[in-house]
Design a protein around this nucleic acid. Structure first.
Lengths: 203, 203
DNA sequence: TCAGTCACATACCCCGAGTATGTTCCCGAC
DNA sequence: GTCGGGAACATACTCGGGGTATGTGACTGA
């Protein structure tokens, strides 16, 4: 009976996945605002009732999607940071991983293009505090611990650095695929320069 | 008769101004999405018909408001930049002017918080290309001409620098007024560091 | 076998942007 | 002086989409 029960569970999980996949596709292609819940339901071969059975609202659906995508990517970036011998190198490794993720179709579009529009700035930042923003602040602390940058109080530096990441991600999103490698290289420059400039004021 | 005609013109201009003022107030306080056109019309003591007589749509109303606010502020920032003897000092002067403007109630909220949500990223960037973004690229060119930073091709640096401005502005918006002076000082640091880092790689 | 609940489908409500159509006032022409 | 017409709105309506309330069949557990 556990089998039958799990069978049923599998079926409902399948529609949930189909809804999430359809939402991911349509939100990245048409954008969050221009895709109705009926569109998502139709793409997943169900109706709007299924959506509201599995998710709380349109933004609720988006948040689940956001968490999925962002958690996966954040793990990779954090691993890249941790794998490096030096925190400064780790930051660049995590940055490269981030820029690479933004070159893929869904991640950047959902997390840095649609999320602010869908959730609003405050909710977006609250959601990001578990992921990119947390990783960023951790990296800044590690850099300060290693004496590579001065220790900063306040939220200005992490906020502005986060804004840099968002701008880089959005730039990559609207860059045609064949130019993305070059743009990724160009994007590294301001971050390297900022690091250099911060470390030079350590003394 | 020119007098009477202008009298009529004054009246219609008055309602147009009342609509723009009401929209500015409500959009900054409640946000663009959470204020209906009926709210704006009621606040201006007219009806929705007046709005669609003077403006093309809700986003059209917002764009006119955006242009008004942004043109005024952009002139000040550009003047601050031009007044300085050195382009590097000019950049900091323009930055200070910008941070000050974001500390006032309407400018930052409309231009950097509501505009992306109201217009979408693409339309927002198109609107900004006449103002902050243009000033920013002009300043980067001036810095390169003066040999203070290397000459960069590509759009990565201006895009990311623009992202920094947006993040700083948004941070100031959500900072309580009594803390804003301190936060402004904190915000200058990453820009100074970026400039220093860029100039150190000039050689 | 039957009550109950899960996993949806169907039908409906409501708000708000946009539109279509009045209505009033002024103005210039005859 | 009046009369056609257009400017400056007001009023009444449509329509799309998020959200809700209710129906329904299938499965499950007692």
């Amino acid at each position: 009976m556990a089998e039958v029960k799990s069978r049923r569970g599998e079926y409902t999980e399948a529609t949930r996945r189909a809804l999430l996949d359809a939402a991911a596709r349509l939100f990245t292609e048409r954008g969050f605002a221009r895709t109705s819940l009926d569109d998502v339901a139709a793409d997943a071969r169900v109706t709007k009732g299924a959506i509201y059975h599995h998710f709380s609202s349109k933004t609720g659906l988006f948040e689940v999607l956001f968490d999925e995508v962002e958690e996966q990517e954040n793990d990779r970036a954090r691993a890249a940071f941790a794998a490096a011998s030096d925190p400064a190198l780790g930051v660049l490794a995590a940055l490269d991983q981030f820029l690479l993720a933004c070159s893929e179709p869904e991640y950047g579009a959902l997390v840095f293009r649609e999320a602010p529009l869908a959730l609003g700035w405050d909710a977006w930042r609250r959601c990001e505090e578990k992921y990119s923003y947390a990783l960023l602040t951790d990296m800044l602390v590690a850099l300060a611990d290693a004496g590579r940058i001065p220790r900063h109080a306040g939220e200005a530096l992490p906020s502005i650095a986060f804004g840099m990441l968002g701008a880089a991600g959005q730039l990559l999103i609207r860059t045609p695929p064949q130019d993305r490698e070059r743009v990724r290289a160009e994007c590294r420059l301001p971050f390297v320069a900022l690091l250099a400039g911060l470390s030079s004021t350590t003394a």
